[in-house]
Amino acid sequence: MYNMRLALAVVVSLFGASVAGAGAGSSDGASGLPAPEGPVILTVSGGIGIGNGNANDAGVATFDRSMLENLDWREIETHTSFTTGPQRFAGPTLASLLDAVAAEGETMIATAINGYFVEIPVAHAAEHDVLLALDMNGRPMRVRDKGPIWVVYPLSEQEILEKPFDTEMIWQLSRIEVQS
């Protein structure tokens, strides 16, 4: 396989720089989320009640890694049909993210860096303990490793045979739009 020389920090910083122009600006509204200090790796928009900006402009919430680390961070071991054997994933739960932005809606459109997108029911977040995985087996995932965020549905070895959520398990996630 390819070499592992590249450290995550490099990737993330480069990636962050590339999207910096599209950032939500440097608003510091008391009611909103704090503005991200590091590179933005996730942007949430649509039917949300809380953004980074002031109360009048709650349309967009952007996250860097440390903001995501402050959410309901979990470490799980699970199987996926894209990997072999049990894998350890770590990251905030999708539910905690949706709480943080006060999302209101039935579904959300999750979009990857390259524009690939998929529709995920909002209810899945609570029903299936969906994780926004940032680390795999103790290491932050690079883009080439399906990072920076991989939507993971915890499943047993038997459950993956049915491939129930293969479509929803989008990797290289960069944007979520909640549809109200």
């Binding site: 390819y2 894209f82 072999t84 883009v143 080439r144 290289q172």
Partner: peptide, 24 residues
Amino acid sequence: AVRDDLILQAELLWSRVGVLEGSE
């Protein structure tokens, strides 16, 4: 385009290669 754009796209291509090589 800047160097970062290039690196990100190289990363994305790497991930496709990984997917194909690891495919069942």
